[in-house]
Simulated assay, not measured.
Amino acid sequence: MSNILKLGIPKGSLEDATKALFAQAGWSINTRSRNYFPSIDDPEINCSLVRSQEMGYYITNGVLDAGLTGQDWLVETNSEVAVVADLVYSKASDQKCRWVLVVKNNSEIKSVEDLEGKRIATELVNFTKQYLEHRNISAIVEFSWGATEAKVVEGLADAAVEITETGSTIKAHGLRIVCDLLETHTVFVANKTALQDSWKKQKIEQIALLLKSALMGREKVLLKMNVPNSRIDELVKQLPSLHAPTINQLYGDDWLAVETVVSKKEVRKIIPTLKAAGAEGILEFELRKMVL
Rank of each mutant, 00 (worst) to 15 (best):
S2M: 02
L5M: 07
K6G: 02
L7D: 04
G8E: 03
L14P: 08
L21K: 05
F22V: 04
Q24H: 08
Q24S: 14
A25M: 05
A25T: 08
W27A: 03
T31C: 13
R34L: 12
N35F: 09
Y36P: 05
F37Q: 12
I40C: 11
P43A: 06
S48Y: 12
Y58N: 03
T60Y: 08
V63Q: 06
D65R: 07
L68V: 14
G70F: 02
L74D: 00
E80K: 15
V84C: 10
V88C: 15
S93D: 09
S93K: 11
C97F: 06
W99E: 03
V102F: 09
V103Q: 08
N105V: 04
N106D: 15
E113R: 13
G117V: 04
A121S: 14
T122D: 07
E123S: 15
K129S: 08
L132T: 11
R135K: 15
S138K: 09
A139R: 09
I140N: 11
E142H: 07
F143H: 14
S144C: 12
A150M: 12
A150R: 11
V152A: 06
A157W: 08
A160I: 11
A160Q: 05
L182D: 00
T184F: 00
I207L: 15
K212N: 11
L215C: 06
M216R: 15
V227T: 02
S230H: 02
R231T: 00
D233Q: 09
E234D: 10
L235S: 01
L239A: 02
L239R: 02
P240N: 02
L242W: 10
L242P: 01
A244S: 10
A244F: 05
L250Q: 14
L250C: 11
G252A: 12
D254I: 00
L256Y: 01
K265S: 10
V267W: 03
P272T: 01
F285N: 05
M290Y: 15
M290G: 03
L292D: 08
